[in-house]
Design a protein around this nucleic acid. Structure first.
Lengths: 243, 243
DNA sequence: ATTTATACTTTACCATACATGTATGGTGAT
DNA sequence: ATCACCATACATGTATGGTAAAGTATAAAT
């Protein structure tokens, strides 16, 4: 009886199993956001017991969250010593940016030849929303910015590409949160977004690629200033090499 | 005074803290290799308790290994159900290959302009070794192949790029282990490697990029055949879309 | 014969206890 | 004043018991 009723449901594959997220995963997401936003300062020590007390849980879920964060290079687990929020390394960020550029430029090229019209409409829509919040609401803008880039990747079915970018973006976003106000002016970023969509819509891979490339190189400009202004947030960068 | 005496010590920066690897990490590495080599079959269920018994340890380290494997998309943890070795998805592999091509082509371009001569010598050396084992020893060849690609990335300081590639390679290597014998002939691969180094050594970014690109597209050719020959190893690939 | 209901098994998840390595302040001998 | 030594506190790593949920098999009922 109930089964036959269920079979009448509209889109079975759209069903999400409610996904009762485990405590460890919830903690992971929460801490990840806190680190990216800078609520947890680079270099700060994170204690399993301490976090467990704060969230009224046991050490085990905290431990699992730490492991995931360590995989993402957001914390550094030192056995029998402690777990610390990793400081930002200028060299690392530039290296990550290089990878991101390689991937997203390739995606933009592909989008110019095979992105569906609905995706272009969605991208234009996102740009409109970005304009709407471009006066002051920088946090909201960052979310729309992320959705913009994600939409491009998913529009050509590059889910894996987006997954990689997402991890890289985390490191780069930490810097953007450091200088929310005096970074690259939002109207300029929005203009760059428009040029990217222009290239995609025109079916011009070279133009789309060039627009994406110059867009992603913005951060290189502001990075040295930021590193100089927040010295305690960055790695000493002299004798590290590997870590 | 005494400080000057301490300054006479041999090489303080060469000190490595011995890195006593935890059981969980050891298990992760072991299981990872087993999955890539195909010793653990796609779809197979992995039980925390079972693995713990096999390796004479407790369930906790096993659990941590599972979490790391899940981050790498090598196993799929289903809460309250079980953990399974993920089947290979043709679409996923093609998506991952796309990302790898984007990164490694960019790296090859960069290497053509700024790789040190020592790196080129090292690459030539690796090719010689590959020739030496190209008759039969396919497992050894795979190791040398990995070292070849890693050397290129690290020669231009792209450690982050290599880290991303390493994760992608895992998925692609699973396929190579499926058809160790009748895959692309090793001499052909070695020839492609040579062309890549030729481009780098000549300082010709376009040539290096083109050589790398065609090299990384080899797998597309053999993939359909392999997928047809090992149907139980691959995802059904019809209604998945996301997972 | 088909369906419903119930008991049972297995699983990942969480909490707790214990083991082991590390940092640190104090103490006494030199 | 300096050093070795030790006690203490705290960090992560490991072991183990308990729990809720999902799957399965058996039995009852229609």
């Amino acid at each position: 009886m109930k089964k036959s009723a269920k079979l009448a449901m509209p889109a079975p594959q759209a069903f999400q199993p409610i996904e009762s997220v485990s405590i460890g995963t919830q903690l992971y997401r929460h801490l990840r956001g806190a680190i990216i936003r800078g609520d947890l300062h680079p270099g700060q020590a994170l204690s399993e017991s301490e976090i467990a007390r704060q969230y009224s849980t046991s050490r085990q879920p905290v431990r699992e969250a730490f492991i995931k964060l360590a995989e993402e290079r957001l914390v550094n687990i030192q056995p029998q010593r402690g777990t610390f929020v990793v400081k930002i390394s200028v060299a690392d960020v530039l290296d990550a940016r290089f990878v991101r550029e390689a991937i997203e430029v390739a995606v933009a090229q592909e989008a110019a030849t095979s992105a569906p019209p609905t995706a272009i409409k969605e991208l234009r829509n996102l740009i409109e929303q970005q304009i709407a919040v471009s006066h002051g609401h920088n946090a909201e803008f960052l979310a729309l910015d992320e959705e913009f880039h994600r939409t491009i990747s998913l529009s050509v079915g590059r889910a894996h590409a987006w997954r990689v970018i997402e991890g890289i973006k985390a490191q780069m976003d930490r810097i953007r949160y450091l200088s929310l106000d005096d970074a690259t002016p939002l109207p300029l970023i929005i203009e760059q977004h428009s040029r990217i969509v222009d290239g995609i819509e025109a079916g011009n891979p070279a133009a789309a690629a060039a627009a994406m490339r110059s867009h992603l190189r913005e951060i290189i400009i502001s990075l040295p200033d930021i590193a100089a202004r927040f010295p305690d947030v960055f790695e000493s960068e002299s004798l590290t090499g590997a870590s």
